[in-house]
Design a protein around this nucleic acid. Structure first.
Length: 456
RNA sequence: GUGAUUGUAGCUCAGUUGGUUAGAGCGCUGGUUUGUGGAUCCAGAGGUCGCCGGUUCGAGCCCGGUCUUUCACCCCA
């Protein structure tokens, strides 16, 4: 006998977990649809050429590759072996599992450019796979819920993304979180203003640790990463920014006054806030963080990230605008902006904060129980009638002690049990018992149906 | 990818300097109750101590490897 096990970083989802996952997914789906997004799906596997080179060097290493079928060593000659596995990859594997939903979407748009009408708003909820080292909140297989718009530069999309995030979180009862927003152009502007052009990456990695290790240590780290002393001095005004979007914008306006690109980014950001204001949005959880950096490999405009407070888990949502993602697939000049919820992390957050409602929405409403063959036969007839009336009913499938049948109902937390004994057969009724209270009454089938339909 | 960490019954965990037959609580099964679940009480089942190898008269405990879990870095949902 072999011991059953799962691949590293993967999980099963049992009935309770699925109910909860669907609760999250429904909130997200409803919101996407409300904002006019249409659903698509793409294959789990893509050609490796579609995936490689899109996520930076690190990303390429995290791709799961699929060994060619048949004789996968066919094209490899002995001399190739010495060159190592990376050099031979193209001969061994031509497909890979998708790493995110954005790149497959870009491929989809490029391939279907003539059928789609732009701007095209799509959402997509599917698993993705990354050969990362698993941790809490980090899995090798996990679901992303993406919504993207391609084919328009309008900043309304950015504003609506914030609207959707707020709506989903509010549906899930999650209050204590912050939506951080920034613009890639502002980051570029900042590096220009401090004389460290092109070093956005290391700058943000170090600054991000400000809360943890303090300004002194961050300066040390920045120096190690090759920043000049003069750059650090010029950076100082951004370290201790006061709260409030408007205040921060005016500080940045001064800071970036000699950087046209930085000012453009700032202006885009202001417009997003202006649109939100016109939509009458509440901006309580929205924060402008000029040091927020994500996915530097392809974002070119707005950048978003959402973190839940009181929980030590990475971001639950992220996204941004990319000017030319479909360019590599031969469709230049199409701008896109999108974002993604991480259901698996949202699940962990809701669980840790105890925010899942106690619901058993899709469960059986009534279990028919019996004492003997005669009761079983009577229950069969009742079962059909109840189901035809739309009552979610089941029949205990074995003739056994009543105790066992009631325990079954109790464990499944079913609300009602219908007892089918000789008395019930004689009077053409069911003894309907409410499991929670133990109360019991004799009802005809029609009365049962009316009662259960009313209780929905 | 780098450095740590975890693994004993279905679950949560004890297990002394290496020493006879590896324990508890919860859960599970049966009974107490032949037309009534949850509570009480009684009884029972269930473990190749993650796996492989080594040291030893003797390994759950020590050593090496491997898988898994979790954490920091990196990156990210």
């Amino acid at each position: 006998m072999q011991k059953p096990s799962l691949p590293k970083g993967t999980r099963d989802f049992g009935p309770i977990q699925m109910a909860r996952r669907n609760y999250i997914l429904d909130a997200i789906k409803d919101t996407f649809q409300l904002f006019g997004y249409q659903q698509i799906e793409t294959p789990a596997m893509e050609n490796l050429s579609t995936l490689t080179g899109k996520y930076g060097e690190e990303g390429d290493q995290l791709l799961f590759k699929i060994l060619n079928s048949g004789d996968f060593l066919k094209g490899v000659v002995p001399e190739d072996v010495a060159k190592g596995s990376v050099a031979n990859l193209s001969k061994l594997a031509e497909k890979g599992l998708r790493y995110d939903l954005t790149v497959p979407f870009a491929r989809f748009v490029a391939m279907n450019r003539n059928e789609l009408s732009f701007p095209f708003k799509r959402y997509q909820i599917q698993p993705v796979w990354r050969a990362d080292r698993p941790q809490k909140g980090r899995y090798r297989e996990f679901y992303q819920c993406d919504a993207d718009v391609v084919g328009t530069d309008s900043l309304l999309c950015e504003a609506e993304i914030i609207g959707m995030i707020r709506q989903v979180f509010s549906k899930l009862g999650l209050i204590n979180y912050s939506i951080k927003i920034n613009n890639r152009k502002i980051l570029t502007g900042i590096t220009e203003a401090i004389g460290a052009e092109g070093k956005e990456g290391p700058l943000c990695v170090a600054i991000d640790k400000l809360d943890k290790i303090g300004w002194e240590k961050v300066q040390e780290e920045l120096q190690q990463r090759g920043f000049e002393k003069s750059s650090l001095t010029r950076l100082a005004p951004l370290v201790d920014l006061q709260e409030g979007v408007k205040a921060r914008i005016s500080v940045l306006a001064e800071f970036l006054k000699n950087s046209p690109i930085g000012l453009q980014g700032l202006q885009e950001l202001e417009e997003v806030f202006l649109l939100l204001e016109q939509m009458g949005s509440n901006l309580d959880q929205v924060d402008f963080d000029p040091m927020l950096a994500r996915g530097l490999s392809y974002y070119t405009g707005a950048i978003f990230e959402v973190k839940a407070h009181e929980v030590t888990i990475g971001s639950v949502c992220g996204g941004g605008r990319y000017d030319n993602l479909t360019g590599v697939f031969g469709l230049p000049g199409v701008s896109g902006v999108g974002f993604s919820f991480g259901v698996d992390r949202l699940y962990d957050v809701l669980e840790e904060l105890n925010l899942f409602p106690r619901h058993r929405l899709e469960g059986t409403q009534l279990l028919l129980v019996h004492f003997d063959q005669a009761g079983f036969g009577y229950a069969l007839r009742c079962l059909t009638v109840l189901r035809e009336a739309g009552i979610r009913a089941e029949l205990y499938p074995e003739v056994t002690k009543l105790k066992k049948q009631l325990e079954y109902a109790s464990k499944k937390e079913l609300p009602y049990v219908g007892i089918c004994g000789d008395q019930e057969i004689a009077t053409d009724t069911l003894a309907v018992k409410v499991l929670a209270t133990g109360a019991q009454e004799s009802l005809t089938l029609n009365e049962v149906i009316a009662k259960l339909q009313a209780s929905i």
